[in-house]
Each structure stands twice: as structure tokens, then as C-alpha cells.
Amino acid sequence: MTTTANLIRIAAGEVGYTEYPPGSNGNKYGQWYGMNYVPWCAIFISYCFDKISLPLPIRSSKGFAYCPDGVSWFRNRGQWFNDPKVGDVVFFCWRGDGIADHVGIVESIKPDGSIISIEGNTGIGNDANGGQVMRRSRTPGIILGFGRPPYTHSVPSQTQASRPATPTPKPTPPQREIAKVPPNYHQDLVDRLLGNKSDKSHKHKS
């Protein structure tokens, strides 16, 4: 049975993994997907769902590597929501432009509406290209929305975090967290995912 509990178990078991060498985007998830040395937050999500035999065939039978593709897929299938449930795929938008910059898995939901998410390619000081699998505490202001996969069994939408999240510095102003990204951010990301840029040491966020 494909359950949220199975997904959280798989994702939680990856917490602490880091890419190698640091700063390369080289990792086992990219190797598995067949697209290594590229931004890998969405590839990590694809890996976790494949492990529970609930693949998200967004760009290939294995999943997706570009966050906006995931948003479109969930929206087109009527599986896009504004309120979270445990096990949802959460998409983040750092700049407030409506384009997904990063993605994670909802592990738990706090009473104030913030969430604990398990994310790939994140890190303290670099939210969306930090090279690690981590638990992060995220506030509603940076959340674009939630994709809800068709589990065969669900857990309650509200639950307390079983383990502490890695602390996230509080933003200023408090209503939105801002991440610095280059103006050609999305075009560069697409170019790298398509193999049009080969410099493995030059990183962009996923």
C-alpha cells in the first residue's frame, strides 16, 4: 500500500545525505534519475516517490527535475491545494513571481500554519541549492502551493513534528522570505537541465 507514512519514512531516512564533491550537484539521486550534476531538489522528490512505488510521471517515468513542471502537472490533474496535508509535495516561490523555485515533502504541520518539510539540495545559508537533504521549517509566505499524490491511505493533516527541524532564520519583513536569485535564473536552470551548459561547478537553484 502506498501511504504517506511510507513516504515520510523513506524521505526521513535520507536526511543528512550530502552531495559530493561539495558544490558539484553530484549525488546518488541524479545518478538514479540519469541526469547528474544538475540542481536536484525535484529529482530527490521523484526518488522518494519511486521508492514507495508511486512514481510521479511528470517528465519521465521516474519523475521530474524542474519545479514548474511539477506545479503544472498537479494543477492539470486537479491535485493542487492551498492547504497542506502530511505527504504533500510542497512548492516554494522565493521571489513572489508565481514560479516555483524549490520543492519538498510535507512531514508535519504546525498550528501557526508553518510546516516542517524534508527537502533535497538545501542548506543553511542556501535554501534551494545547499547540497544536502534536510528538515526545514517553512512559513506560509514562501509557499506557492501543494501537490497531493493519490495515496491509497492518508494520515491526519495535522501532526506534531516527531524530530526537530533545522532552524531557519526569521525573515525581515516577516510576511515574506526573500532569496537572492539572478535575473536569468529560470532560463539558466532550463539550459542546464537540457544539457546546454556543461560547467558542473557553476550552480543554480532548483
Score class of each variant (00 low, 15 high):
I99K: 13
G141H: 09
V86F: 01
D50Q: 10
F146W: 05
P150H: 05
D50W: 02
I99P: 00
R136N: 11
F81P: 01
K170I: 14
S53V: 00
F146Y: 15
Y151I: 06
L144V: 09
V71G: 07
S154G: 09
R75C: 07
E119D: 09
R59N: 09
R176E: 11
I109E: 07
C48W: 00
Q158W: 09
I178L: 15
R77H: 13
P167L: 03
R138T: 02
S154L: 11
V181D: 11
T139E: 15
S72L: 05
T159N: 08
A128Q: 04
P164E: 12
P182M: 12
D101F: 05
Q132P: 03
S157M: 13
I142Q: 12
G113E: 05
Y151D: 04
S117H: 08
P156W: 04
R148S: 08
P174V: 08
P55T: 00
I118E: 06
T172Y: 15
S114Y: 04
S53N: 10
G145C: 03
P84A: 03
I45R: 02
N76S: 14
Y66S: 06
F44T: 01
F81V: 02
P173A: 04
D83P: 05
S114A: 08
N129W: 14
S117D: 15
H102G: 02
G70E: 02
W73K: 08
S46C: 06
R138M: 06
D112K: 06
P150V: 03
E107W: 01
P150W: 01
I118W: 00
G70C: 02
P156A: 13
N82K: 12
S137V: 12
D69W: 02
F91I: 02
I143C: 07
Y151S: 01
I115V: 15
E107V: 06
S114N: 02
P171E: 03
K180T: 15
P156V: 07
S72V: 12
V106T: 10
Q132Y: 02
N129D: 13
F49Q: 09
T166L: 09
F146I: 08
W73A: 11
K170S: 14
P182F: 08
I109V: 15
P55I: 03
R136W: 01
I105H: 04
G145A: 10
A100S: 07
A100H: 00
P140V: 09
G120S: 12
G120Q: 10
P174D: 11
S137A: 14
T139N: 13
G123L: 05
A100L: 05
P156M: 11
V155A: 14
G104P: 00
R138G: 01
E119Y: 04
V86I: 15
S60K: 07
K180F: 13
P149R: 09
K85V: 00
A100M: 01
V133Y: 00
Q158H: 14
S108C: 14
M134S: 05
V181Q: 15
A165N: 01
G104N: 08
G63D: 04
P149Q: 11
T152V: 09
S162P: 08
P156E: 10
D50C: 12
V103G: 00
K170G: 02
F81I: 01
G113C: 08
I105W: 04
A65S: 15
D127E: 13
S61M: 02
N121T: 08
L56H: 07
G96T: 13
N126R: 15
